[in-house]
Simulated scan of single mutants.
Amino acid sequence: MASILIVDDELGLQTSLVKAFSMQGYRAAGAGTATEALQRLELDAFDVMLTDLLMPDFDGITLMERVRHQFPSMVVILMTGGATVESAVRALKGGASDYILKPFTLAEIFHIVGRGLEQQRLKQENVQLNEINRRLQEIDQIKSNLLSAITHEFRTPLTVMHGWLDLLVGNHFGRLTVEQQESLSAVRKSAVRLGRLISNLLVFVEENRDPMTRERVPVNLADLLREVEGELAPDCAERRVELQMEIDPTLPTLLADADRLRLVFFNLVENAIKFNEPDGAVLVQARGDRQSLEVSITNTHGEIPPERIPRLLQPFTQGDMSMTRAAGGLGLGLALARSILDAHGGQLAIECGQGKGTTVRVRLPLPR
């Protein structure tokens, strides 16, 4: 239970208050002067000091100011029989939690002390929450810096790997046997996959730091989607998934960050291929009106339970995050897509049809 020091030169009131608070479960003690109160505080700690305003040696406001300097978290409540507006204002400005006019009932003083303790508890919790928030921000910054450093450092050796692989596959060091070609093909696929993961990590870090600073240029969405189709052709062949494109040839040009937008559709189409089944299909449809462009990406398998959709939009999350999951990846594709589209004033929606796979819809505003 809380502890309280009662300071009053009226011995009868001091004694009765000590007894009353003790009966309420407080650890209570009394002092007859401000000097005696300071001596008690040197020997023992109290949660609350209930002090009279007028005392023989010096007044309660001066005592409060000295106590506040040494014990800033203590709840200080002033008692007075002749308070003025000026003394009340001075008391509250000096750090008093509250004041009460004499005479008062026990119920009134219990209520005021309890309220002061509750306010102090909330202040302490707020300080703790602010400290936790500060530490979380520091940890988040460390994580961001670490991811940025790792991904940048990975890019250099990956570039070297691609260079040597191109030389080897191009027979610059002699003709390769079929087995060697197959082995190097497997290495190249892994290098490409690693490059995609690194690119996503870099963009994730940059988007979290400042999503709005990159230049917007005119973008032909039809051309961009065709580029994505060409890049993912090997993935379709490997997984035996047919990629179908239905693009309105009259799509207007939009203003966007071309690299970021390409990454959005690359990740979304790659997900539709990856979370599909052999002999499945992915349909990409693009159409527009005077105000916006809409792209829908639908696969024939890989249906997502509706309750999992909000979770999938969080970074580093997939429907199955176990070590034995069928599809790899960092779980950044949807989170990155939403972040980039938000920066463009766009929208992303996921629709799950019963037994009909999953559709991701992207809507982008056109320049006015």
Rank of each mutant, 00 (worst) to 15 (best):
F275H: 15
D59P: 00
D8K: 10
Y26K: 06
E294Q: 12
L54D: 06
L92R: 06
D47S: 09
D259Y: 04
E118Q: 01
D166C: 00
N267K: 11
G302W: 04
V284I: 10
M323R: 13
T359C: 03
F204C: 02
A335P: 01
L268C: 04
M212Q: 11
F265Q: 08
I100G: 12
G32D: 10
P157S: 09
H172I: 00
D44I: 05
V127L: 12
E238S: 08
Q119K: 08
I132C: 06
S16K: 12
A233G: 05
D52T: 01
E307T: 03
G288D: 01
L334R: 13
M74E: 01
R287E: 03
I150F: 03
L101W: 01
R325C: 12
Q180T: 13
E86V: 15
Q354T: 13
V67N: 00
D248H: 15
E206S: 01
L336H: 07
A337C: 13
S87Y: 11
L168S: 11
F154R: 11
E179I: 03
F46L: 08
G25T: 00
W164P: 04
S22H: 05
E86W: 12
L5G: 04
A186D: 06
T177L: 05
R216M: 12
V18G: 09
T253V: 08
Q347L: 08
A191T: 06
I4D: 00
F110K: 09
L263C: 10
V169E: 15
H162C: 02
K102I: 09
A45C: 07
S296P: 04
L53Q: 14
R68A: 15
L225I: 05
H111Y: 09
G331E: 05
S190R: 00
H344M: 06
L261I: 09
L254P: 01
D166R: 02
G60P: 15
D223H: 04
P103N: 08
R66D: 01
M245Y: 14
E65H: 10
F104M: 05
E303G: 02
D44T: 14
F71S: 06
R27T: 02
L336G: 09
L43E: 15
I112C: 11
E10D: 14
R240H: 08
A45H: 07
E65D: 11
I109P: 01
E242D: 00
T151H: 04
G357F: 01
G25H: 06
F275C: 05
G116I: 08
